[in-house]
Simulated scan of single mutants.
Amino acid sequence: MTGDTPTRLQIPARTAAAKLIVVVRAPDAADYDRVLDVLVEAGIRSVELTLTTPGTLERLPELLARYGDEADIGVGTVVDGEQLDAAVGAGAHYLVTPVADPDLVAAATLAGVPIVPGGLTPTELFGAWRGGAAAVKIFPANVVGPSYLKDLRGPFPGIAAVPSGGVDLAGAAAWLAAGAAAVSVGGPLLGDALRGGDLAALRDRTAEFVAVCGQAS
């Protein structure tokens, strides 16, 4: 194989240390604040806001000003170059995509923003990693389980992987024990909080996840 080895940016330091990314897929960007207030106060240091939530990019500079000193704010569900450029321009600390698109990896790296592309097969995951991804997202993680990462790390011992999709509290512990760089969680932590649910219960669930992931640090 010929060619230069791509530059690899690292996932942000707070995300790497916390080993926990919370995916906040809200009905509307106006719904972010009440949930992010609790998450950040309870110790979350990395949040992925998704482009499937209307208004995310428009609100991102404001949210970065409010929470960015305490937590990494990433933008997820990036699926094309236009979205990537817009997220970079709005100040995203990192990018996440559900696909292993080498063009997105190259564009993010050129822009100086770490990117975590998603895939499921060894070919997809290693291709994205070889292309310079900061880490690769095993998605959907619930169809393979933590033993899959142990298998991947046989031929690819240096790969940094972040499982995403159906990762609950026990799953977070198991994936981290299997060698995950971090875990990406959504519904099992957020519950009904984005639909007006109990914020005290959200705080309790968050504390549990922070404690479990902190033990793996």
Rank of each mutant, 00 (worst) to 15 (best):
13 A>W: 04
16 A>E: 09
19 K>E: 02
29 A>Y: 03
30 A>L: 10
30 A>S: 15
31 D>S: 06
34 R>F: 05
36 L>P: 07
40 V>F: 08
43 G>T: 02
43 G>L: 00
48 E>C: 05
50 T>C: 03
51 L>W: 11
52 T>E: 12
52 T>Q: 11
52 T>L: 06
53 T>L: 08
54 P>L: 02
55 G>Y: 10
58 E>S: 11
59 R>F: 07
59 R>H: 04
65 A>C: 06
69 D>F: 12
69 D>Q: 01
70 E>N: 12
74 G>E: 02
75 V>D: 01
79 V>D: 05
80 D>H: 07
81 G>S: 14
81 G>C: 04
82 E>V: 15
91 G>F: 06
91 G>Y: 04
94 Y>P: 08
97 T>I: 02
98 P>D: 03
99 V>D: 09
104 L>I: 01
106 A>T: 05
107 A>N: 03
107 A>Y: 04
108 A>R: 01
109 T>P: 03
111 A>Y: 10
111 A>M: 09
112 G>A: 03
112 G>M: 13
113 V>Q: 02
115 I>R: 01
117 P>E: 01
118 G>Y: 01
124 E>Q: 10
128 A>N: 00
128 A>K: 05
133 A>Y: 01
135 A>E: 05
136 V>F: 03
139 F>G: 13
139 F>E: 14
141 A>K: 14
142 N>C: 15
143 V>C: 13
144 V>T: 11
146 P>T: 11
146 P>H: 12
148 Y>F: 04
150 K>P: 13
151 D>F: 12
151 D>I: 10
153 R>P: 01
159 I>E: 13
159 I>V: 15
160 A>H: 13
161 A>W: 04
162 V>I: 07
163 P>G: 11
165 G>L: 14
166 G>E: 15
167 V>D: 04
169 L>H: 08
173 A>Q: 10
174 A>S: 15
178 A>T: 05
179 G>M: 10
180 A>G: 02
183 V>M: 12
191 G>Q: 13
195 R>L: 12
196 G>H: 06
197 G>H: 02
199 L>N: 13
199 L>V: 14
200 A>Q: 00
201 A>Y: 09
202 L>C: 05
204 D>Q: 02
206 T>F: 05
210 V>H: 09
211 A>L: 11
211 A>M: 08
213 C>I: 04
215 Q>G: 07
215 Q>W: 04
217 S>T: 10
